[in-house]
Amino acid sequence: MFDKKKDAETTATPGVQPTPGINSSNARSASATTGAMIGASIRIQGDISGAENLLIHGKVEGKISLQKNDVTVGQAGQINADISAKTIRIDGEVNGDINGAEKVVITSTGRVRGNIVAPRMTLEDGAKFKGSIDMDPDESAKSASEKTQKPSPVAGGHS
């Protein structure tokens, strides 16, 4: 179902080269993110917004806002920014507040300093975190229920 090699190829964004030194874990992250990627040598100062998933191996200072999409901070990623997204996975380092509409995951290599708001939160063994976590499983259930009840878009309708 998920062909990692194929997925990695389809994530390639014009002008963004595959990043040397990205290990298999990051490659796994990449395969989970069909969207844009910020390579390890890229440094961005400013706000990021958009409507596709984002994988970050570089450095970002500013604000990241992808309300309906997923953000993954790869192992080499260094973020000094607040992040808002649907689901957020952190394998690297984040200094800033995190708002996950559905879920936030800090993996075993993740280091986070900031406040997290998310209906569901997973902290893996070995993860470093300092800050506060606002959790509410009822919000998660409500959001899931809204999603299942959402009517299908009408064919030919405008977005």
Binding site: F129, K130, I133, D134, M135, P137
Partner: peptide, 30 residues
């Protein structure tokens, strides 16, 4: 209402998992 919990220790996966069952704000102070 949202329960407020102070954990003065380092972040523990089990503790986060446990409190994720309820509406709360968990402060990990380390």
């Amino acid at each position: 209402r949202r329960m407020k919990i102070l954990d003065v220790g380092p972040a523990f996966p089990e503790t986060v998992q446990f409190f994720s069952q309820v509406c709360c704000r968990l402060y990990i102070a380390d």
